[in-house]
Design a protein around this nucleic acid. Structure first.
Length: 310
DNA sequence: TTCAATGTTTAGAC
DNA sequence: GGTCTAAACATTGA
């Protein structure tokens, strides 16, 4: 499940591989996943083949200047006055293939992060968009559950894109100080919610999902169920500190390959080795040996150590 | 066979 | 308006 570190891993890899490449043609197999214009997802879920044709014709001959990230949204910046915004949601994947890559893999890639998942030849039945570049390289967009989307906006429309307007601060940004974090916590209008829910709220801070909220709270020694109003300032300091540390460590490890996350060459991220609580319910705490428990919080599962976290 | 669970984000209900 | 749930969709395991 891509959260900030996984999206950052993909963005870094794509930026390196796609910079200065020019799109020759695009194939769209799932028209409802692509759109043109700043509208929200629901506006184009019913999109027909005509809008896919527009999507394709706009992308032709576009040269990629850079690939960036805001929250969990990927932003492809083109040399023309256009950008493409891509959300991977839960199961979106980008796989890049050039001659060298094909020589290594024979054109087969791991599409599911299961130890015994068979390698798949691309395009697979879950490949919904394919970008062909003029130098012969190919970028595949796969999404098993089709929750993701790709939309093209003009540079002058970017300011109207709703999701970009509503994202909270970037947790790894230099400007994201403890004071800013602290003030946002104190001003949050719904302190009745649990701290885990707050960390996962994209309006509070961008890019933290289920995996990293669990891990951050473990290191900060705070239970996910604690109400925001009950958390002491000293604990808030720890949470703030571990937001940065956990996310930085995860980016260094190229993300957690939980569920369907894979890198653009089909390899897996290594962060899962460093998980202390996420996905470890029923297993022993790596620090104290107590059995990790899990709780339901608003439809989401939170895992914690009942001894280490207060 | 059915059903819950997965997990990001948003639309819609209360 | 805050707050909650269901839904977008496919797969898996109980």
């Amino acid at each position: 499940m891509p959260e900030l570190p996984e999206v950052q891993t993909i963005v870094s890899e794509l930026n390196r591989k796609l910079k200065n490449k020019t799109i020759k043609t695009v194939i769209v197999n799932a028209p409802k996943m692509v759109a043109v214009g700043p509208g929200t997802v629901s506006n184009f879920r019913k999109a027909d083949k005509r809008s896919a044709d527009k999507f394709i014709s706009l992308l032709k001959v576009q040269k990629i200047v850079s690939v960036k990230r805001r929250a969990k949204l990927l932003i492809f910046d083109f040399s023309g006055p256009l950008a493409m915004l891509v959300h991977l949601k839960m199961t979106g994947q980008f796989i890049f293939e050039d001659k060298k890559q094909r020589a290594i893999t024979g054109g087969k890639y791991r599409l599911l992060n299961k130890p015994n998942a068979p390698l798949t030849l691309l395009p697979s039945k879950h490949t919904h968009v394919i970008f062909y570049f003029t130098d012969g390289s190919i970028l595949y967009f796969n999404d098993v559950r089709k929750f993701g989307y790709l939309k093209i906006v003009r540079d002058d429309e970017i300011d109207q894109v709703k999701e970009l307007l509503e994202y909270g601060p970037e947790p790894l940004g230099k400007k994201y100080s403890f004071i800013q974090f602290f003030t946002a916590v104190k001003n949050w209008n719904s302190k009745k919610i649990g701290i885990k829910q707050l960390l996962m709220d994209p309006k509070f801070v961008a890019g933290i999902g289920n995996i990293y909220s669990d891990e951050i709270l473990f290191h900060a020694k705070v239970r996910p169920t604690r109400k925001v109003a009950s958390i002491k300032n000293q604990e808030l300091r720890k949470i703030y500190r571990w937001i940065k540390l956990v996310l930085m460590q995860a980016i260094k490890a190229k993300g957690s390959s939980v569920g369907d996350f894979i890198r653009t060459d089909g390899s897996v991220g290594q962060m899962g080795k460093f998980h202390f609580v996420y996905g470890r319910s029923g297993q022993k705490c790596k620090k104290c040996g107590t059995i990790i428990e899990s709780v339901k919080l608003g439809g989401r599962t939170g895992s914690f150590c009942p001894n280490c976290q207060k």
